[in-house]
């Protein structure tokens, strides 16, 4: 059987809120090392990769590898019934067709069990090669969210450029143009307010803002976001999940025909 008890249940609620509008159905792959998920959006433009390591759980048991087929909208409905401070336990039998979510209130005076039907999903797993990215930028996740939202009101695509000076986001549309530059700033008080640029080569790529906007639904998971870019490769937008792993989004670039 599989059982995972998560003291900080709100993390799972946040993960679902971040991905439920991008991906419809997906397998949660459970193994003795944790829970992993990989899924594409329906247009095959973006890919989501989630890792929740066993060590981040208060209790974790997985007797054999299980692929739990889940409709994310339905799981989100269930998790919305958990309080933000609740402990969430996931349970599934090896041959079962349901998953149980148990919510425990912080002082243990309310215990709720929600059972959700699983589905059979033929998933296509993609091998993501290790890449030495030309530019890696870490910046406040709220700042990234703000920039992407602001640019979305002006254009449909954004050019993201990284030089040793910083990272720039540009767009254009019927009403005009916009260009935002965030400079490296490592001398701010709080580490989470820093913007850091690691660069091997300047890079500039074009992406659909609609997807970048969708990725920023993960902002609540981490105060910082890391953007990794290389010429003619998908951008990686990564939110680290404290003690547990990460939520990564890969977005295919737009290129000249």
């Amino acid at each position: 059987m599989f059982e995972g008890r998560l003291l900080q249940g709100s993390l799972l609620k946040k993960v679902l809120e971040a991905i439920k509008d991008l991906v419809t159905d997906t397998n949660f792959d459970c193994s003795e090392t944790g829970i992993a998920l990989q899924a594409m959006d329906s247009s095959h433009v973006a890919l989501v990769s989630l890792l929740l390591k066993d060590t981040g759980f208060d209790h974790f048991r997985c007797d054999r590898n299980l692929a739990l087929g889940i409709n994310l909208q339905n799981m989100s409905k269930m998790l919305k019934c958990a309080g933000n401070d609740d402990i969430i336990t996931l349970k599934a039998e090896d041959e079962g067709d349901t998953i149980t979510f148990m919510f425990e209130s912080p002082n243990q005076d309310k215990i709720s069990d929600f059972e959700m039907k699983l589905m059979d999903i033929d998933s296509e797993h993609l091998g993501i090669p290790d890449t030495d990215y030309q530019a890696i930028v870490t910046m406040p996740s709220a700042e990234f969210q703000r920039i992407v939202r602001d640019l979305s009101s002006i254009g449909d695509t954004a050019v993201i450029g990284v030089t040793k000076e910083g990272i720039s986001f540009s767009t254009g549309g019927d009403i005009g143009k916009a260009n935002i530059v965030c400079r490296q700033n490592t001398n701010v008080d709080k580490e989470e307010d820093q913007t850091t640029v690691e660069i091997h080569e300047p890079v500039s790529l074009t992406f659909a803002l609609r997807y970048l906007n969708s990725f920023t639904k993960a902002t609540a998971l981490s105060p910082q976001v890391t953007l990794s870019l290389s010429k003619e490769l998908p951008i990686v937008v990564e939110y680290k999940i404290e003690k547990m792993g990460f939520l990564r989004f890969y977005l295919a670039p737009k290129i000249e025909e």
Partner: peptide, 14 residues
């Protein structure tokens, strides 16, 4: 004109 690429074209199907 810019063309949206497919994410699958960048990764290997396992």
């Amino acid at each position: 004109a810019l063309k949206q690429t497919n994410i699958k074209s960048f990764f290997v199907t396992k």
